[in-house]
Design a protein around this nucleic acid. Structure first.
Lengths: 336, 336
DNA sequence: TTGAAAGCGCTAACAT
DNA sequence: ATGTTAGCGCTTTCAA
């Protein structure tokens, strides 16, 4: 077994031309089955490994799809990527993953780096980017899909939902449960643009109900952890002891808030109702179960991947696919 | 701004040769600053984007490091990858990530696919692979780093710890707390080889203490979710009501077990002690806090990345780096 | 400090 | 069903 066999070596050993080897490897129907079998056998013996870097250059196709998410360590985004993978893989496409740490400048850097790899398409999380990012994306001339948002002026295509509007559903639910003095626990900065949109949506919905919007607790720099959620809950209970419900920017911070209540001997929802966002697994198993909003992360991924496959096949695709989030009311806000 | 400018176009527009443009882009000191500035300016105006696919082929370097993890949706592995990223990125290396769904055959497929992309090195999770995977890896002639395990016969290099031996620490701790009738909740299959190693380690440690090893609860196909942990806890309490402690294969299943106790009105650790594995954030915030083992996922990633950087620089590196896990005793197993 | 020639390992296009 | 020729967009190498 010789090191670093090339297609040429396989061709020589099999007594055919390089082109025939190339065809045999891409399952071109025009290669005689016996010839292909012989080639595959020889290639195996030589330990030949196909070199896609050469194919990429010659055919001007990399079969890469660049995907940018805010964080690797987030079940929601993992679900979106997880749902994209089989759809893309089925069409020979491979994901080139990057994570931005919730920073649009980091995103700009990554977009620049990834475009050099000549992906066939690019998927972003969120609808807010630097001007330069937008320029780079537009100039790249490939399908661009923004997800987890539904911006007014998408770069190209969008699959997602309005984080702001969705909060209206949550506030409506809490108000219907009889809550009025409702607080919001979220990030201090707009680094997590989706989190910031949720805060804005919360304020708008409260105002629409004619409710006071002073109970805004900053829990730290996004993403907000369980611990930060717990700390914020502590501050909320001290600064606004008469609060009767709290909406958290995610289920993780909401769970942290729950634990703080447990440690203080407060009953949820008896003393205070707690709601989250994201439909993480924890929401459905913690005690009490968390009222949350399911943004259907896997559906977003699937739709985005389908869109890309269609566009790369030269077929059309909608510019805007709305994936409607669903509120799941559970024990943490519903008094029995 | 013209579409698809090449280096040649930039060279023409700047009135220099392609080679000078190439040098200007890689910050070759031999290019006169003024020349470089002019080239960068022209490139910008043309909307030129460097094409690494061509460079990859010619220089036989992709600057890719392939990294395989069992699942995207796991904070432990995300931490490992997250710690590798900055170290590699600093040296111009980019991660090409794949996930195996805890399946060594899926791993084999991915290794085969990824090697075609000609990565400079490859990082795997775990020390158990198919024979073909091992052959492919060996033949690739690049640094191979196995992580999250400490196999006897590594393919090349290892950074990790013994999942089996680490369980000894946990059993010792529980025994020291006065527990004897200790159960284990883990996967039904060996798909998660690390989980299976933990189960084996648990059995060995129990035997070493002369304790009964019949309380093995299968919680489903790995990875074991919170929900499966809760269900398994339910079965454990029914089948072996006199159990006084339970070790779970991960903090996630352990948390599920905790919630089941809470729903049944059982006190932890008063009625039964519960321990996990992984030092996930939840272990340190749930009520009661979980006794767990911190395998230092970030340290594993950092060491693996450093090893790769060293090897690619032609420097030496240890074949075997042990990262010692640490037990954190907390409320869930310690009676006050 | 810059340039010219050659070529990385494949595949498109055309030929037979 | 298979082969020949040319070339993808860079960088290596050698030269000046």
């Amino acid at each position: 077994m010789q090191r670093n066999a090339r297609m040429k070596d396989v061709a020589q050993a099999a007594g055919v031309s390089v082109m025939t080897v190339s065809r045999a490897f891409k399952k071109d129907a025009s290669v005689k089955p016996a010839t292909r079998a012989a080639i595959i056998k020889v290639a195996d013996e030589l330990g030949y490994v196909y070199d896609s870097t050469a194919a990429n250059l010659r055919s001007q196709k990399t079969d890469f799809v660049a995907v940018l998410i805010p964080s690797l360590n987030n079940a929601n985004f993992a679900d979106t990527v997880g749902a994209m993978t089989p759809v893309l893989s089925e069409h020979g496409l491979q994901i080139l993953l990057g994570y931005t740490n919730y920073d649009i400048h980091e995103e700009e850097y990554l977009v620049e780096q990834l475009l050099k790899r000549r992906p066939e398409a690019i998927v972003l999380t969120g609808g807010r980017h630097t001007d330069r990012t937008r320029r780079l994306l537009t100039a790249a001339g490939i399908p661009v899909v923004e997800t987890w948002d539904l911006p007014e002026d998408p770069v190209d295509r969008v699959v997602g939902f309005s984080n702001a509007e969705t909060m209206g559903t949550m506030v409506d639910h809490l108000v219907a449960q009889g809550h009025q003095r409702i607080a919001f626990i979220g990030g201090d900065t707009d680094g997590d643009t989706r989190g910031a949109d949720r805060r804005r949506g919360f304020l708008a919905a409260m105002a629409a109900h004619g409710l006071e919007t002073s109970r805004l607790i900053g829990a730290g720099t996004p993403p907000i952890s369980m611990r930060e959620g717990a700390e914020a809950m502590g501050r909320l209970l001290e600064e606004h002891p008469d609060t009767d419900a709290v909406v958290c920017v995610s289920d993780l911070s909401a769970f942290g808030a729950l634990t703080e209540c447990a440690r203080r001997g407060l009953s949820v929802p008896g003393d205070i109702a707690v709601a989250g966002f994201g439909a993480y697994e924890i929401a459905d198993i913690c005690v009490p179960r968390l009222t949350t909003i399911d943004p259907h992360p896997a559906r977003i991924g699937q739709e985005a991947a389908r869109m890309i496959v269609a566009l790369l096949a030269g077929a059309g695709a909608e510019r805007r696919v709305a994936v409607e989030p669903a509120l799941t009311a559970a024990e943490s806000t519903v008094r029995v």
